[in-house]
């Protein structure tokens, strides 16, 4: 697991206001990251209601959308991220063995 320790995860969560789905998504991703990435990550929350011009940059259609900026390639997961397995597979995160 030496490799994964050096890896850094830069995530962006696009939301539109404080909708239940957005809140749920944020709670979920925070939880997964804490459990599996051992602090090697940042989560940036972009509220498109406040910054609508940012939607085009990452080709955001659906809300909420989680974008993995780093490591490349860019991956997107849409929805409230309620399915942990899918999210981890989607982000290509290998769960830490506890």
């Amino acid at each position: 697991m030496a490799k994964s320790k050096r890896e850094f995860w830069q995530l962006k969560l696009y939301v539109a206001g404080q909708t239940p789905k957005s809140v749920a998504a944020l709670t979920n991703i925070k939880k997964y990251c804490e459990e599996n990435l051992d602090g090697q990550y940042t989560i940036e929350v972009v509220d498109l209601v406040k910054n609508p011009q940012l939607a085009a940059g990452d080709q955001i259609l659906a809300i909420p959308t989680l974008v993995r900026k780093v490591p490349e390639p860019i991956r997107k997961i849409i929805g409230d991220l309620s399915n942990e397995e899918k999210v981890l597979v989607g982000l290509d995160i290998k769960p830490l063995v506890k």
């Binding site: 696009y14 998504a25 498109l48 609508p52 939607a55 085009a56 955001i60 997961i77 399915n83 899918k86």
Partner: peptide, 22 residues
């Protein structure tokens, strides 16, 4: 608006508010 299926994973509820906002 680019829609690439292989880039996008879906999990749980979502809406197209992003499109609306754009």
């Amino acid at each position: 608006v680019e829609v690439e299926r292989q880039e996008i994973e879906e999990t749980g509820e979502y809406d197209l508010e992003g499109l609306f906002i754009r």
